[in-house]
């Protein structure tokens, strides 16, 4: 009997190692340890043995059982590993296929440009104020030192809705409104918004466009302050090497008035097609707040002075990004807007 057990032992090792799946392994295990296994036969023969013999055989059988279980467990680990290996092969994917489309939106480039400017001014302690687009002639023109019959009104062909109201032609009326509200207190604001002029739309004209107005009113505000402020703005917007220059100009609501040029950011000032060889590009207008404007809004121009400027948002965006047609902004084609 012991002899037989030894034979089974040899056989079992081989059989277990041959099992290819968990099921096969379980079958093999049952073959040696199950109810119908030869081991059961050995048990049934045990009653005929002496106590000594019983003890010995019992010991051997236990050793055999332990051996089988150990072998089965070893094989089980192996089979599981093999299965993982197989599964890994099956799970192979093409990682170069495109990922799932997650819809991606974009802010309008005009909004982005305004937000960029707002951020610059917010860090300098400015507030953002807005005003009505359907504006009174009083604020749009008269309080901006453009009385009725002023020749400069020719410059701004406007959309009137009746003799006293119009779609604002610039963001400057927000200056007047802000000053009246501030009641003589110092002011530091920017005013972005839509404006309207009676122009036919083409590549460089739009009957609707956006401006950002700046206004600072305090004691001893100077042209140098305006220059410093705009220089900082333009450096942040267009690059650290950007320089600005003032040229004399005329706006009824500022005195002195200046046009502001920046060094061409394409050629850096050497002269190219963008700046028409001059090295400079006109970007905005500004000046010191005209004493009449201060007076009309309740400030004593002998005590308070100020500066104001107005920037065309489209113009800045067009120059910065090389956009050649202003109508692009209002077509709002996503293929255009997603480029920025």
């Amino acid at each position: 009997m012991l002899q037989k057990l030894m034979e089974m032992k040899e056989n079992a090792k081989e059989k277990i190692s041959e099992a290819k799946s968990i099921q096969e392994l379980n079958e093999t295990k049952a073959m040696y340890l199950g109810k119908k296994s030869p081991l059961q036969a050995l048990f049934s023969q045990m009653k005929d043995l002496s106590a000594e013999g019983k003890k010995e055989l019992g010991q051997k059988i236990n050793e055999f059982k332990t051996m089988i279980e150990e072998e089965v467990n070893k094989r089980l680990v192996k089979i599981k590993e093999e299965e993982v290996e197989r599964r890994l092969k099956m799970e192979k994917i093409d990682v170069t296929l495109p990922g799932k489309e997650i819809p991606q939106g974009a802010l309008h480039i005009l909004t982005k440009t305004i937000e960029e400017m707002e951020d610059i001014f917010l860090t300098m302690g400015y507030s953002v104020v807005e005003g009505p687009e359907v504006e009174e002639d009083l604020y749009n023109f008269e309080m901006m030192n453009l009385p009725k019959n002023h020749p400069a009104r020719d410059m701004q062909d406007s959309f009137y809705i009746n003799p006293n109201n119009l779609l604002r032609t610039h963001t400057s009326p927000v200056q007047a409104r802000t000053m009246l509200k501030a009641k003589g207190e110092p002011i530091k604001v920017i005013c972005p918004g839509k404006v309207y002029r009676r122009d036919d739309d083409d590549a460089t004209h739009s009957h609707q466009f956006m401006q950002l107005e700046g206004l600072v009113v305090d004691k001893d505000i100077s042209m140098a302050d305006l220059k410093g402020t705009l220089s900082l703005l333009m450096k942040k917007m267009l690059g650290e090497n950007t320089k600005i220059r003032f040229r004399p100009s005329y706006f009824p609501f500022t005195e002195p008035s200046v046009e502001v040029d920046v060094t061409c950011f394409k050629c850096g000032g050497k002269g190219c097609s963008l700046c028409k060889g001059s090295g400079w590009i006109e970007v905005l207008g500004g000046g010191k707040v005209h004493p009449n404007v201060l007076k009309m809004a309740g400030y004593d121009p002998n005590i308070y002075t100020g500066f104001a400027f107005g920037i065309g948002i489209e113009r800045i965006a067009m120059l910065k990004h090389g956009i050649d047609d202003i109508r692009n902004f209002y077509i709002s084609d996503p293929r255009f807007l997603k480029q920025f």
Binding site: G125, Y126, K188, S222, A224, D225, K227, F246, R247, F307
Partner: peptide, 16 residues
């Protein structure tokens, strides 16, 4: 105007 220095308004205001 090219001879003007670059300065900033000195008065402090809360913004935002």
């Amino acid at each position: 105007y090219e001879k003007l220095p670059l300065t900033l308004p000195t008065g402090l205001k809360e913004g935002g």
